[in-house]
Structures are given as C-alpha cells and as structure tokens.
Amino acid sequence: MNKQAWIFALLITVLTCSFFVGKQSVTAKALLIPSNFPTPTYDLSKNPLTEEGFALGRKLFYDPLLSKDGTISCASCHQQDAGFVQADHDLSHGVEDRLGKRNALPIFNALFRKSFFWDGGVPKLDFVPVNPIENELEMDEKMDNVVHKLNASTNYRALFKNAFSVDTISSKEVLQAFAQFMYAMVSANAKYDKFVRKENNTLLDKEELAGFNLFKDKCASCHSTDLFTDDSFRNNGLDNEHPKDKGREEITLNLADRAKFKVPSLRNVSLTAPYMHDGRFNSLEEVMDHYANTVQNSSTLDPLLKSGTRLGIPLTSNEQKQLILFLNTLTDSTLINNKDFSNPKH
C-alpha cells in the first residue's frame, strides 16, 4: 500500500490551457489519479478529458431522452446520493416499470476497471452505455434513435459542436462524452484513503483498525488493491443450484464459470444496498451472516470459501461488527456531494 501523502498525478500537464479538437477550441480538464490506486485501464489519449466533453456526458447521464419513452435516464438506476446505484431496488428498474435482470452496480472508478457489468460482458468503457440503452428491460431504446434524437435538438448540436467540433452527432461523440463523465468519476476520498495516504493525521479508531486487520486477513484476497476488487469473477456461494442466472458462464459459455459474478468494489458499500447481483441482502449484517453461516456448496464455489473445516469465512459476531465498522470508512462523502457529478438541472 502506498504510504505517501495524497499526490496528484496530473495526466494532463496543462491545467487550464485550451487545445483544439478539429477546429474548435476546448478546455482541458484535470484528472487526478489517487496515489494509492492502480494504473488506469482506459486509454486517455484516445479520448482526453475536456470541460466541454465532461459537461456533455453529465447532461446525457441525467437526460431521459436516452430511453424509448423518455422516462428513464442513467441516473434513474445510478443515483448520486446512493453511491451511484438505485436505492431500495434489488433489480434495476426500467421503462414501463420493467424489472431488470440484475442489481445495478456503482459506476465510479471505471477508469481503473478491467471489465464491466456483473458478468464482465463489456470489456471496454466506451461501450458500457449502449448496454442499458438497448436492454429491453432497461431503457429499451436503439442507439441510432438516440443519435437521431440528439441531432434533432439544436441545443445538443451546439454542445457537441463545442466539445467535439462536429456538425452532425454520431455515436462516437455520444459514447466519448459518456466515457469522459464516467472515467472522471474517481472516488478516493474516504476516511480510509486519508488514513492510508496519511492526510491530516487521519486515524482509524480501535474498532475500525481491528476491522481493517480482519479485512486484510479474511476478505482482501478477492477485494484486493485500493479499488477493493481484483476484478475477477467468483461464485460466492449464494445458492447451490443456478437455474436462472448463470453469471459469467453466459459470456464465456464455460461451465466452470457457472454462477460466477464480478467481485464488486467495496468502496461506498455503506451507501449501495441492497447487495449481490440479485440484490438479495438489504444490509451489510446480512452479507456478513452469509459469509459466516450460509455459504452454499456447488462445483464452482470459490476455493477460498471451502478451504476451512466448514464452508464460508469463520467470523464471530464481534468480528462481523468490526468488519462493518471498517467498511464504513470506505464511504466517500465527497463523491455523493460533488456538484460536478450531480444533475445539471438542479
């Protein structure tokens, strides 16, 4: 773990100077890479961050125009005050009250992730938005219709011209604007971060520290690095049969991937209830109870959950409490209060 103070690695060397996209002058926006994070996976040189592109991505994110009937925006299922998931919904909620197949995942720190969605079906951030837009249970729209609707708006045409120097909007600019908004959404200002980066003499209290030590011992094999995920796919023993959702197997068609799902980041986990791919647990207490007491066996159950004398992770009730206290230190209030990421209309 990096013990250095909070160092800003400026990817864009010149903060406020203008540069040119085609004929149009745009303003570079600074992107801050936390010193305790792994290197970005997104190729920023292909789509550098600009004030104009970011603002456009933000506007699109909050615009229900993206959905078939104009009722659902990205923010419907990715709410800022809920750590960019949908509060109180086990499954994501689409147009005409349709229910999605899985629980919405948070979208912050996408810059560092190796693949997207519970099954990792989308390896590139550029193509993440097309999935919910075209999913019949979510926005049920077609990407070409989105492009038509945007081109029909004088306001959007002007904004795209400013940001990308185009007279006619195409999916390329739409997806690049989205990518800019998403990859700039870096969450790294939790109490935990200040503690590991030794900022403002921040310390974890005795119980949180006990939780941290337990975490390193019992959880960090999967929830590794300061992203709190190794980005792998694992079966964490929710069920012993998997008739409905085969998880990663649906992408790889490999039986060995049955019921494996993306290890989620634990950042802001106190905000992102309910938990698991199907949102079956409403509280972190239920999650702890699962790992301690109710892990189910199946052929693809993660080996780390069957290495002991019984299935799961041995955790006393006091240890579970300490772990939850530690997980609460991963809550980044600057993310949920950052006006940069809020609805531009409010």
Binding site: G121, M143, V146, V147, S170, S171
Partner: peptide, 20 residues
C-alpha cells in the same frame, strides 16, 4: 468504429450490447 461498424447507425441490429 465508424462507417459500417457504427453501433449508433449502420451496425444497428448487428451488434451485441451485453456481450460486446
């Protein structure tokens, strides 16, 4: 991914969004 490969134009219906 422009031209025939544009998922928001020519390639409509010729692209899997969930399994890119």
């Amino acid at each position: 991914r422009t031209g025939t490969l544009d998922v928001g134009a020519a390639a409509r219906g010729m692209y899997w969004v969930w399994n890119s």
